[in-house]
Design a protein around this nucleic acid. Structure first.
Lengths: 249, 249
DNA sequence: AAGTGGTCTAGACCACCGA
DNA sequence: CGGTGGTCTAGACCACTTT
């Protein structure tokens, strides 16, 4: 009964968690039903009890199961917790490649500097800026539009990296691109979040027919004291959630 | 250097997590600073590496630390919490914009427990929940609607505190109220942010005539391991922005 | 090469639950 | 009492990062 393979790319406990998830989704294990004990599962799938516990930890964290000391582990009735854990993680949006299945380059060109931007990015008005526009797709549907401005030296490198990633068929955001540019290492960002309605331009890019709420995120990305990117991102509100954990003082 | 006691009531890893938390709060370990490796901590506190990992798992889950494979474990930047907690302090946000803030209690009553909520807040289905609904105003105009659910013991104390604040004419959110309840000290929260359109209920509460984008924030507020509040907040999108600073790894 | 976190094992004792 | 999850140990090897 050992369906699990020792494969370095996906850990055993993740594989086991997926098995558990499948059983629940297939209805083989029904809500409130007790599942086999940790020791039994370990024997069945030929893994140690600690590995089973890690798998169950994951499933509990996702709201699929719950444990009761001395009684056993049970299938949870679908909960809010589950809903929350499926939400895109803030981190993954910013740094991992996450759920965006593909990325398109809409525009990559020099742009005229306006006063606000030139002040912000600390370039001369005579200098030009680089404008990079990307669209992120999930399941073939556009879900996010990025509109970024850079100082020219940064913009050219980022665009070159973008073309390479695009050619390789990998999805990316500008943050991912920075990883491929040795000289440029963003340190922090400042962001504002707003809820707005799509205007005509955004509706066109994101292929929206009707009135749709949009998540507008304005980011300034810094390398130390220097602002290296000004970005406005528009996320389809019904497709995207942000998730954070924070401590309270 | 072994401050930890083998005490059956509080596990070693919880004790160690508390030690870590203290060091961070005392400033002994500063933001972005690397903390000792798992093996070092194990040696220092005379516990196994797995126990250290469990402690760090807890701290990571609460947003105190983050790990990077091959590099180490680091103290998370508290800027996220600071900027965002300003957001939650209703009065300061509004007064910065020159608006006069006030809060109204819409509803404060026992509610029937639904399965999702009871699982989340870890109460029995037979128990009841407490539902508190608040509206925040800026210059007499409603800008935000809070819909919170608590276990009864928490809910009653929060509601009492709310009535006192209301009587004193001070604006408040539930986070402000916790400060006035000695027994209840939230440690962290998990939140999702989405952009939605106002439904009929929200439109009525926030007095909206037309299609309006709404900022919907879902929060679960924890005291340690225990969830003490489930809150959905609806902010008028054209009146509210959220701001954060975050570091990039 | 050395150090880090990530995964995994085999075994142990405990506290809680139900028969 | 036996079975369950909860905690804990002392190792081991891996993948990743930095020196």
């Amino acid at each position: 009964m050992l369906n699990l393979k020792r494969d370095r790319s996906t850990p055993l406990y993740t594989q086991l968690k997926n098995v558990i998830e499948e059983k629940i989704k297939a209805g083989e294990w029904e809500p409130e039903q007790q599942i086999p004990s940790e020791r039994e599962l370990g024997k069945e799938y030929a893994v140690s009890r600690i590995t089973v516990r890690q798998a169950i930890d994951l499933a509990v964290n996702e709201g699929l199961l719950y444990r009761t000391h001395g009684k056993g582990t049970f299938v949870a009735t679908p909960t809010i917790k589950q809903e929350l854990s499926k939400v895109d993680s803030f981190q993954s949006t910013l740094s991992q490649q996450g759920l965006v299945a593909s990325t398109d380059i809409v525009k990559a060109e020099m742009a005229v500097t306006d006063l606000q931007l030139s002040t912000l990015l600390n370039v001369e008005m005579m200098d030009r800026l680089y404008n990079l526009q990307l669209v992120g797709y999930g399941d073939e549907l556009p879900i996010v539009f990025y509109d970024s401005f850079f100082p020219v030296d940064v913009g050219e490198q980022v665009t070159e990296a973008a073309r390479k990633e695009k050619e390789a068929g990998r999805p990316f955001t500008t943050l991912d691109l920075y990883k491929n540019i040795p000289d440029i290492a963003p340190t922090h960002s400042k962001q504002t979040f707003e809820s707005v309605l799509a205007d005509e331009r955004i509706a066109k890019v994101l292929k929206l027919d009707e009135v749709t709420p949009i998540f507008k995120v304005t980011s300034i990305i810094y390398m130390g004291e220097r602002a290296i990117e000004y970005r406005t991102s528009y996320y389809k509100g019904d497709k995207y959630k942000f998730f954070i954990t924070r401590s309270i003082q």
